[in-house]
Design a protein around this nucleic acid. Structure first.
Lengths: 179, 179
DNA sequence: CGTTATATATTCAATCTAGAATATATAACG
DNA sequence: CGTTATATATTCTAGATTGAATATATAACG
């Protein structure tokens, strides 16, 4: 549902075509979301069928592929607000593949797994550094909305949480508490 | 990929049929994973076509629907180990719908959003209490493998992280730092 | 100036997922 | 004992998602 939310949100500011939406997402939201081309065009089709958006025309620059521009409708604005309310209200549990790997610990040699955990720990530390550096850099530009800080903090918090958990698990494995 | 991993993992212990796999997942892994019927039967079909599992026969108790029992093959065991290695190695960034809602803050009245954040904070605290109680209860039974503790900790860590972030964001909104 | 790389714009096939629909068996209950 | 609820077992459809494939335009570079 977040695909629909992003598209309606961006279209609520001005009319856009598919490729442009992809570009905006990558440029302005790339740190905390990712949506494939297929998903965007699929969602635009569906939203148009539901009359939440409508095709306002087909532009073409020179001989480049023509582009279908969509604008949001009144119904679409209402739907966007509904989706936002739903998004704020719903709390989704998230699942981690690593938990499944851990559940089947014993299938792979223990030392091999410890190696993976050490690598994960290192990667997580790198990711954390990267996010924090990127955060500082982004927020130096005053143009970025203030809330961008909160969104960065979200990533930082969860990455730090994952790093803490990984470090703790590895320590318990190395001192023989686990498995 | 986690669907395949779970199925191959469970089949690596003994032959099972689809519904049984669903039951085991809900009973033993329900706290940290969830797989729908459709996904299980789809994956079994696919795994069979790839010769990672094979149908060993069709049981039937009385006049109940017959059940197709699958067992893992040697190729399947190798594939399972490959998937485990891949699972340990890959680090997947996760995205949160709430970040998108936050990006579009300003569309809904600010007080309404604050209300949602307070509700989220309360829900998160409840979820945290619930996990911790459940964790204590589960680990009291000595039969549960020791690593179950680590998996619970994973949920606890991330739920706590989410709670911390939410609390912080709300505080900044209430003291006027945000938006 | 010719060649290669990159950017523009969309479509498509392949895959995966959730959950309702189906159909029957047993348990529960007054 | 009849009715309702729940458990067993799978199938099926509708929907969603990804990433490659397609086709052209501009930039880069020696």
């Amino acid at each position: 549902m977040s695909v629909r939310m992003v598209i309606l949100g961006l279209l609520s500011e001005r009319p856009l075509y598919g490729y442009e939406i992809k570009q905006i997402i990558e440029e302005h939201m790339g740190d905390w979301t990712s949506i494939a081309f297929g998903s965007i065009y699929f969602a635009l089709d569906k939203l148009a069928a539901e009359q939440f958006v409508e095709k306002v025309g087909v532009e073409q620059e020179g001989k480049r592929p023509s582009r279908s521009v969509y604008q949001i409708t009144e119904r679409g604005r209402a739907e966007f607000m509904r989706l936002l309310r739903e998004g704020w209200r719903k709390f989704e549990r998230e699942y981690f593949d690593v938990d499944i790997c851990l559940f089947f610990l014993g299938v792979l040699p223990l030392d091999e797994v410890k190696g993976y955990l050490r690598a994960r720990r290192a990667t997580l530390q790198e990711v954390l550094n990267h996010i924090q550096a990127h955060r500082a850099e982004q927020l130096a530009h005053a143009e970025v909305p203030r809330l961008a800080g909160a969104i960065f903090d979200h990533s930082v918090t969860h990455t730090q949480a994952e790093l803490n958990w990984t470090t703790d698990l590895l320590e318990k494995m190395e001192t023989g508490i686990y498995p």
